[in-house]
Amino acid sequence: MTFRITCPVCGSRDVYEFTYGGHERGPRPAQEGLSAEEHFRWAQFRTTRAEAQEEWWYHGAGCGVWFSMWRNPATNREERPEPVDARGTGPTTEGDGE
């Protein structure tokens, strides 16, 4: 398996240069009142869907930035889903900030 990833800093590079950080599942939940099940669901569970998803990648052999991008794991192509509504809740491409 091999494909290319577009780093927002360095551009299109071989996937070998990156580390996968899992699909987007939101920031670390607040600890107050967090049940063990909620924690492990957030920390461990991975969706496996054959459709475009937002993912985290780390460009370890390049700029050292974590960024999120949309990719379809079924085709390994960078691909955005059809917009769901008109509010513009589009995918983020920047690594920093929520």
Partner: peptide, 13 residues
């Protein structure tokens, strides 16, 4: 280590 720090603070800005 750098990867780890940045991963776990990536939402925080």
């Amino acid at each position: 280590t750098v990867e780890w720090f940045r991963y776990h603070t990536r939402y925080d800005g």
